[in-house]
Nucleic acid binder design. Structure first.
Length: 161
DNA sequence: CTCCGCCTACCAA
DNA sequence: TTGGTAGGCGGAG
């Protein structure tokens, strides 16, 4: 199910499955809709997750470490992608790693390019910090959500490239 | 099997 | 330094 989360950077859209947060979308470039009243119908569990998600999201956007994350439902990804995403969760605010380092950490030192693919397939940007992964030369690589966003997120954490 | 990608290391200008 | 490139790997069709 889908809900909207208000942040200083705009309204994000969160998707929840029966297992937890399954996806997150950046605010639409153009303001699609203004309000959402469907939240009143959400099950208590989902509302709790949403609350945690909102707090965590705002924390990261502010460059801080989220105290707690909602349960994440990464089941949509392949085993390889999930291992990459779990590795990304270990990167703290203001810290970065290269695609090659991630590859090493998950035991696929040569699968560098594949790691990039996994990052691009990340369904939960921001909370699963795909933006803290830079190219080998410590330069910006790419970012499916738009390089602008990657730059902003890093800037909020005090990282410049 | 083929094609593509948020990569890299390497080699030629 | 900049630019082109081939290798390597997982995912999608």
């Amino acid at each position: 199910m889908k809900t909207h989360i208000d942040t200083p950077q705009g309204v994000f859209t969160a998707y929840f499955s029966e297992h937890g947060l399954a996806g997150l979308d950046f605010p639409a470039a153009k303001p699609a809709k203004a309000k959402d009243t469907g939240e009143a119908k959400l099950p208590a569990t989902v509302r709790a997750w949403e609350k945690t998600t909102a707090a965590a999201l705002r924390a990261v956007l502010a460059g801080k470490d989220p105290k707690a994350l909602p349960p994440l439902d990464l089941s949509a990804g392949t085993p390889f992608q999930q291992s990459v995403w779990r590795e990304l969760l270990k990167i703290g605010p203001g810290r970065t790693k290269s695609y090659g380092e991630i590859a090493n950490l998950i035991g696929r030192s040569r699968a560098v390019r594949a790691v990039g693919g996994a990052c691009g397939a990340n369904p939960i940007p921001v909370l699963v910090p795909c933006h803290r992964v830079l190219a080998a030369n410590k330069k910006l690589g790419g970012f499916s959500g738009g390089l602008e966003r990657k730059i902003s997120l890093l800037a909020a954490e005090g990282v410049t490239v």
